[in-house]
Design a protein around this nucleic acid. Sequence first.
DNA 1: CTAGCCTTCTATCAAACGTTACAGCGCCAG
DNA 2: CTGGCGCTGTAACGTTTGATAGAAGGCTAG
Lengths: 291, 291
Amino acid sequence: MNGARTGARPAQSLQDRVRRDLPAFTEAERRVAHALLGEYPMAGLETVARFARRAETSGPTILRFINRLGFESYADFQDALRTETQARLQGPLSRYDLRGQTSAPAASGGLAVAMRQNIETAARDLAPSLPAIAERLADLDRKVLCIGGRFSWMIAGYLHAYLRELRPNVRLVRDGSASWADDLLDVAPADIVVVFDFRRYQRDVLELAKGAVAQQAEIILVTDIWYSPVAALAQHVVACPVSIPSAFDSGVTGLAVVEIITAAVIDALGPGSKGRIATLEALRKPFNLGP
Amino acid sequence: MNGARTGARPAQSLQDRVRRDLPAFTEAERRVAHALLGEYPMAGLETVARFARRAETSGPTILRFINRLGFESYADFQDALRTETQARLQGPLSRYDLRGQTSAPAASGGLAVAMRQNIETAARDLAPSLPAIAERLADLDRKVLCIGGRFSWMIAGYLHAYLRELRPNVRLVRDGSASWADDLLDVAPADIVVVFDFRRYQRDVLELAKGAVAQQAEIILVTDIWYSPVAALAQHVVACPVSIPSAFDSGVTGLAVVEIITAAVIDALGPGSKGRIATLEALRKPFNLGP
DNA sequence: CTAGCCTTCTATCAAACGTTACAGCGCCAG
DNA sequence: CTGGCGCTGTAACGTTTGATAGAAGGCTAG
């Protein structure tokens, strides 16, 4: 009954603390520690009984182990584990963000923090499929069509603007356009349709995607983490977290994805693309003013 | 052709399955799905009661949700979650280091990192002038005109789309539009012109800004850190770092600034703006699919 | 050798849990 | 307006759970 440890705040990571206190534990408790570290953190998120079986010990030993770590109950311990792991899954930077939150300018109310986390998550989500996506967009034998919904068509517009500087045969379909049928007509098998669709998902975007599939086009979808229904038709889906502390969802994540994809396309295209950009710049010079 | 890694069915993570099935769920179940995705995966590792409270629903709804996903019991569901998350934590993508920020998303070549730094810097730079900017954009006695250059007009479009949902008398001038003179004609003293101008700065944007000043409009400029020449005419200047390791400058920073400003405008407008958004949503309902 | 303490297990209990049955509600068809 | 159906929350149930008390085993000090 060694009280006084109530509600102890983990000054450092739980994992580290377990490792550090390891020599101080009894033999059975050390088995518990090893079981936890060996399958960290999920071993500790099971029931006491299963955790005990895993550590080849009994329930009460688990609870004494938990108490010694400074937790009043097994539930407290699991809460701590969950919180810590969630932060860890959110990305390496998130813990810095949390630290600095008190000193951060409240003026932007955590908006910047949320956006940065969204980008981090999206970039990680995108990474595995990036090469395949870039390869297709860099394939000059395929035409590319970019479309978006009420808000997201502006992001589609960005992709269109970037790609147009890099390669021919890129077109943009505006939201609410009456010419969708015409645009679909030009879509050939193996062409790429890049769809941007965030909630609230619009019916016409889905319809156009269906049409494109009927023409045997390949669909790349950039959507929010709640998945547009277009996902069912798409070969590649990029999910963007879009939540920020505001009345609107954030478009920043989608644009970040576009720019990451664009950079990958440049890589895939090789040196030729640089020349194309330079030519374009030269052509536009008369419309610009001073560098 | 082999099943691309990103391809049709990428190992169907539980998360993906929830997203994919989302449209098929009922309203309350969708709340559950959102709660889970919003705090994935830890929301699902809590007790049913807590999960339910988080999703603002009741226990049985959680259970029905779980069943629909194909699990016989909540315990089965949690087992799957644990297994999957444990694998994810041990996977190469989350080779994190709790002690330091040594992990880098190499796949995207530091693009995400650069974008995040840019946003952070811009948000800090914006903070002092944010109240003044928001106050002006929330002043319904002033009309608002948004304009931008070749790339940046899409960011202007975003601001326009947001503001239009919040207040009347907001217009967007498209890059290269022939109607600039007409647009200028409507500008009255004390009206606000929000100019987005990133290099290469375009002559026509500067011309329009000059015209607006002649009409005694107030100019808010969002530009890159090299300052568009419009800065000389502007009352408020927001400087955005736009450098990323790519052939193009980043538009992400500008969009982030727009969304931070938008959130501040909502605050400045007070509760009335929410009603306006709701009305708009209702009006648009026929064009959307699913709730 | 034995008393005392520490560690660990078994047995037990109340509380919390997941689960099920049922009733209220809104919605659409007739 | 009415009947039926699907969705959802409330209430009750039986089980499992975390937690505790107490006994068995083993180690050390005296």
